[in-house]
Structures are given as structure tokens and as C-alpha cells.
Design a protein around this nucleic acid. Sequence first.
RNA 1: GGCGACGUACCCAAGUGGUUAAGGGGGAGGUCUGCAAAACCUCUAUUCACCGGUUCGAAUCCGGUCGUCGCCUCCA
Length: 470
Amino acid sequence: MTLRLTNTLTGRQGAFVPLEPGRVRMYSCGPTVYAPAHVGNFRSFLFADLLRRYLGWLGFEVTWVMNITDVDDKIIRDAGREGVPIGELTARYTSAFLEDAERLRMTRPDVMPRATEHVPDMVALIESLLATGHAYRTDDGSIFFRIASWPSYGQLAHIDPTQQRVGERVEADDYDKDDVRDFAVWKGPKEGEPSWDTAIGPGRPGWHIECSAMSMRYLGTTFDIHTGGVDLIFPHHEDEIAQSEAATGKQFVRTWMHCAHLQMGGQKMAKRTGNIERPADVYARGYSPRALRYALIAAQYRAPLEFGEDSLRAATAAVERLGNVLIALDAHRSDATGDPGFPALLGETRERFTAALDDDLNVSPALAAVFDLARELNRRLDAGTLSTADAQSAAAFLRDLDRVLGVMEEGDEALEPELSAMLDERAAARAARDWATSDRLRDELAERGVAVEDTKTGQRWRRLVEAQRG
RNA sequence: GGCGACGUACCCAAGUGGUUAAGGGGGAGGUCUGCAAAACCUCUAUUCACCGGUUCGAAUCCGGUCGUCGCCUCCA
């Protein structure tokens, strides 16, 4: 089996063949840092992360670039409201993003370029567009890409640009363009806005140009994969293609991948409508980062995904189920002899897992394979037929699959000393068969958000989500 | 108006021509346990929005109807 991915450009699934054998260059549209990212944003980022992890797991050497947009209209607007320089606002939300990303176990991209640090790259790109007549200046110092100069415009979104309905907002546009469909690659200077003095004059970059400049800067004029949410297909990515290919004369991106929206209550999660939830909101209700991660990656990326209390609860249980089997395998010691068929059991799971992910990152059947294995392992654990060595190889196997999923284990989490002391006290009470004390402490710990379970090898604790607390 | 996605059990979600319609959650019963929890076992869609058609055979293909969502404007 080989990896097959759906390419928005062709609208079909095709075998993924990187430009350079064994090596993948991919770019993902990252956050605009004017507010904390919401979980819908993270669906897109974690989809890219899953792809990046799977490519790495398959043995590809991956270079992953994710941009940080740190200058745009909203940033300028919000910084203005607060009366702070845009750099102060963007620094704040950049670190918030990085923290959220880390808690969600998003692989750290190899490069996270900032728009403000790549103005010269954008200027160079714009210069070549001006030189070739694909872009033109307007009186206010802005520069626009001329869509009429690019016949294949619309190839990604599969639209005919002449059929575009151009709304009333055209009048509302502050800029004076030759054609309403033309888009800004450079915005002329304005009072109260940040501005760069460059060879093409003063001003600031347009939105689309940053992704073209930064992706090509780190990945070359043609690279393998570019990801984003479906809402970026048009106009953002369409514009990126036009300006990049017009400037270089070469194909920009070979495979475009877009994930569907996260929905809440059947509606797209979007900041504009206020229909959003942020990672911090989810954690505040007691859900763990890995449960959130699971909830966001557990369905195939091209299908809209419903998010909410139910999905978080289900994700919590699913992720604990996987964590529990690992804990049990680690603790397992047995005189049972190894099963000669055991490697085949793991091999079958691996095949199902790989076949599913090879099929355009179809996570659901991949997870089904993992859960089927978990049940079989628990069965053998219960029956006492699993040898110590087999348990260990199963644990190592699951951890290997989790290099792709990143949901099976909680990070090392320390328990508060006070609660830890209660656990010790409870262990002592149990040793004395003092059930009353033991049960009282268990209830008290539950009230403090910690569940205690008794196993053959002693007590085990885990955090409870709010909904489970008594 | 243009383009696109989708409608599978109580919820989420696989399956896209042919054995018993994955998996997770939830629910019911049972085993185990000092009691729990975890885990395991059994049950929980004769049916895939609806109506026609093609076919020996369709959730899967075709046509129609209804419904939902998204993009066309900042948007992951």
C-alpha cells in the first residue's frame, strides 16, 4: 500500500509521490495572532500534525513549515484599541498559541516564520510581479495582483472568475483597483498603521503574499504539500497560487489538502459568529488536552466534525481506555508462555492501521484496529494467558502507533502532596483491611477530582473531568 | 445565482455493488471485586433521509424529492 491523499487541485485522491524521494516538504497555514486560537483552528493544525506525524512514521524525512501571521487588519485594529504596539499584542498571542499547541501535542514545526520578519522576501516577490506585469500600483501606494493576467485563476477553487458574484462591498473597499477581483499584495501606508520602507515603497504586506514568500523561502519554489481549512481555498490559496506561479513560472504546490470545519450545534465554529470554544474553556471543564486532541483528530479530516460535550466525554473515555491497557501491560508479570501467534496479532493490527491511514488519513478505521487490539489484549490479560514478554512487546507496539496519534498516555503529571499523602494513608488503611477509612478517603479524593482504583498491584489514580465528579 | 460537502443506531463515526452494517461513547444485564473502579462477556440498526430505477444482488450505481452544512467577503 502507498499513501493516497486527496488533492484539492484535482478534486481526487492520488498516490502521494514526493518531489524528492524519501523527503517531504510541507507548509501549513498557521494562526493570525490577535486572539487565542479556538478549537476549530486547532482541528486544522492537528490535522496537519497528524499528516506530519504519519509521514514521519512512514519513514519520510519531513520539513514542516507553519507561518505565524503577525500583521494584518485585525491585529492593527485590536492593538489600536488597546493602545499598544502590534508587536506587543502578537507576542502575547504567539506564546499563547505555542502553549496551546504544545499541550495538544502538536509536533513543533521545523520553521515557524513570522510575516513581519520576512518583508524583504515578500518585496522581492512583488518586484518580480511588477516587472512581469502581473501586478500594478495604485495612487495610494498599494500594489494589486491583476487576475486578468493569470488565465488559470480559479483552478484550485474550481470556479470561473468571470462568474464570480461581486457584491456591494466593492464600494466599501478602501482601495482603488482596476478590477474588483484583483487582490492586494501590498497595502499602501496609512496614518496609524505600521509601515515598512522598502524598494517598492512604504506600506505593509497583503495577507496572501506572506504565505507565498515564506513557504518558498523555506521549501523552494515547488514543494509537496500545503494544508489549511476549507475556508482558505478561496480566495487565500487561490491567490497564493496565482502570485507564486506568476512570479516563478513554476508549479507552486503539488498537493493541496484542506480539512473540513469543526461544527458546534451543527454550525461552523467561527469567531465571527461567536460560536467558538477555546482549549482553555475545555480544560476549565476538566477535560484533558489529550481528550481534546482525540476529539479533534478522531474523524477523517475531510468530513465536517461535530464538537461538543458529548464528543469530549466520548473522547475522554476512549483515551482512558487506551491509557488503561498500556498501564495494565506495563504492570503485567506472568509465568504464561509466549504465544507464537502473538507477532501475527500485532502485525494484523499494524496492517489495518497503515491501510486506513494510507487511505487519505482515514483515522476512524485505524482507531478501530487499535481498539480491537486493546480488547484482545485485555481479554488475554484477564485470562492470564499473556506472557510478560508479549505484554511488553504489545506495549511497545502501541506506543509506536501512538507516535502517529499522540493520545494514549498522559504526560507525567504530579499529584498535589496533600492528595498524595491521602493516597498513602489509604494504602495503609487497606493493608489493615480498614475498609471504612479506605472508602472515606476514596470519596474525599473523588471530591477533589481524583479517582482511585484498586488493582492487583496497588492503587491507581487519575483525574476526573468535572462531569464525573460527585 | 455559482461551486462544493453531506444525510448510517440514543450520540459521534467507518463502510461506497455480494458472508453477521467497523470502532468509540451511552444504556440494560452478567462476571470479577470487601465495596467500587478498571477489565471481560451478552444485548442495544432485518436496516442505512424519502421515492423510483439499474442489477441475480445496492447503504453503496442512476434519476428525482426533502433536509442540513460550507465557500463565493475576514475566516482553520
